[in-house]
Write a protein that binds this DNA or RNA. Structure first.
Lengths: 328, 328
DNA sequence: TTCGAAAATAACTACGTTGTCAATTTTACT
DNA sequence: AGTAAAATTGACAACGTAGTTATTTTCGAA
């Protein structure tokens, strides 16, 4: 094992520095020589030694991602996208599932070019000891020493409420994770309540339904409860696509039609799965938008471009026929 | 940025090779000197340069894990455990979510000490080009050029069927993912059918129930179907803990008691979550066992110990009071 | 043909560390 | 005190590559 540029040099009858240049596609090497060297490299199944390369060039073309324990499922799609984007810019992505501090230390030792942190709880102490630039996806914080990419969840829910109001809805329910350890979920509920009260909509018994988690089953149960009660809303806004799926199942079982009897808008960033019977109206920032911004920020940070410290991405409302207008 | 051992050497008034040895805790350095050097290193916030270290020592103390697109949720707990085990043996784990071939190439360039592949579909072509040893967690294959750790799913289901039979059960249903793209699921169903027919149990209408996926909701639906029909089994074996949860919800709704009216055994490797009302009888290989074997195999491979090529882990049956005996 | 500049290639150092071996200091014993 | 042996420290060559500088080759013009 271990074919080095020296082996290639010997085989090609040139010096190893020429090989180095040829493999980096430097214009300092004549075209035919370059061709020959590259051919021999492939022939010998040459794998550049990343350690040596990094040592010599002080560049790793690698980005370290700190992968949190929780929320892995939700973020899985996002990470995949970001990975694609970075790969297109010829960066390699490596993940660590260690605690943030440990992971940051590891990535520093590996001299990655930048670190992406999915921030659970906005702790930025660890960054102080990182000489590698950090970018975070999490809750915005004007005092953060590193750039944060955030999503305007408040605005998202507000858009949904406003839209439904304009369509004539006056009894709107929100189904989501209320009792909040999770600040992201909390934000959404708060925004719902504020939007509703700002519009002067009367609250009613089923205005806000709390669920234990954001799974399909929770949505199913919550929707069933609502639909069995006396206070049936004309529209539901829910906190995740999975919840929405559960809600739809419940409506089907109880012969409640969407959107005739009830309209639904779901908050979500991930692309809609195909297997829904009713295409879902959603509000949120498209995954592609998020991943593009994250990837771009990382690359900017590496190239030391000027970047604004906190980027808050604005949501989009996508209405399908899971919503209808109520005539007055 | 960039404190090197030379900086420390200067500060400590010793040669840099002494610093190197001190930081590696070599017995060749006198204790007080060592202490002093380590203190200064900490003082200066020294971060060893992993690239240089690797280049010089040809060891990275790092293990690369190829993380497949699918099944991330299920494997998340396993990876976490393996990471812990390896950390205890002072190895660092890095993940890649790229396609197996790409990931293997990256890890080769990074000169990790070993690569762990979660094998989707038993393709071993990529290994040929890997000079770094590979270990796989997946379906066993006697011809594989690298060690594979597998779980004896057939035996697991067999154990469950046999146990229930011995307890007097004669109407046993299996709920799981039948229509098989997934060979792992397929194995379980096959084993169920074989075990049942070997014992001479009559098949009946609800003997095997196919679900779309292994989620809670699927279990809920399947169980409801069964319980509403005329062919109610005395025991259910199901393919995942999530399914079991759904099944339990269904029984509660329909006032069916566990284990009085129906016994349940779930296949699973992951540790049982606390939030179940009824502690679940399970059959499978405990997660700890799997992770220990995987970690040990990786380390053995690195140290070039002799290892058997394929390790099949045998399942354990854990019976709680979600099962009961049927008197004849 | 010969000279000179440009193009191509080769030589060499640096990167930060480890590990081997040589040099030095300390220790223990005569 | 002197000496050998042991303990400790230091010097230096790798490791594989990038990049800078030096050398050779090529080619056009005189």
């Amino acid at each position: 094992m271990g074919v080095t540029i020296k082996d290639i040099a010997k085989a090609a009858g040139v010096s190893y520095s020429t090989v180095s240049k040829a493999l980096l596609n430097s214009p300092l090497v004549k075209e035919p020589t370059k061709k020959k060297i590259i051919a021999i490299a492939k022939e010998l199944n040459y794998q550049p030694n990343a350690a040596a390369r990094r040592l010599a060039s002080k560049k790793s073309n690698t980005i370290g991602v700190v992968w949190p324990t929780i929320e892995r499922v939700t973020l899985s799609a996002l990470i995949t996208k970001i990975n694609e984007q970075l790969e297109a810019a010829s960066y390699t992505t490596l993940l660590s599932i260690n605690p943030v501090e440990t992971a940051v230390t590891i990535f520093n030792q590996f001299q990655v070019d930048a670190i992406l942190v999915f921030d659970d709880n906005n702790k930025s102490e660890y960054t102080s000891s990182s000489s590698v630039p950090v970018v975070s996806y999490g809750l915005s914080d004007p005092n953060s020493p590193y750039p944060i990419i955030d999503v305007n969840r408040k605005q998202a829910i507000h858009l949904a409420v406003e839209y439904l109001y304009q369509q004539g809805h006056r009894k709107i329910s929100y189904i989501g994770n209320v009792k909040g350890i999770d600040r992201l979920q909390e934000e959404k509920v708060d925004s719902f309540q504020k939007s509703v009260s700002d519009l002067g909509i009367d609250t009613f018994a089923n205005a806000v339904i709390s669920v234990d988690s954001l799974d399909q089953y929770d949505g199913y149960l919550a929707a069933k409860n609502i639909l069995h009660s006396e206070h049936i809303p004309t529209a539901i806004i829910c906190g995740s696509q999975d919840l929405a799926r559960g809600i739809i199942r419940a409506t089907q079982e109880l012969n409640v039609s969407i959107p005739e009897d009830i309209s639904i808008i779901s908050y979500d960033n991930i692309p809609q799965r195909e297997d829904l019977i009713i295409p879902l109206s959603t509000v949120g920032v498209p995954l592609d938008t998020i991943s593009e911004h994250v990837a771009k920020t990382l690359i900017d940070v590496i190239n030391k471009e000027e970047i604004s410290n906190t980027i808050t991405l604005e949501p989009e409302l996508k209405i399908t026929n899971s919503c209808r207008t109520i005539k007055e």
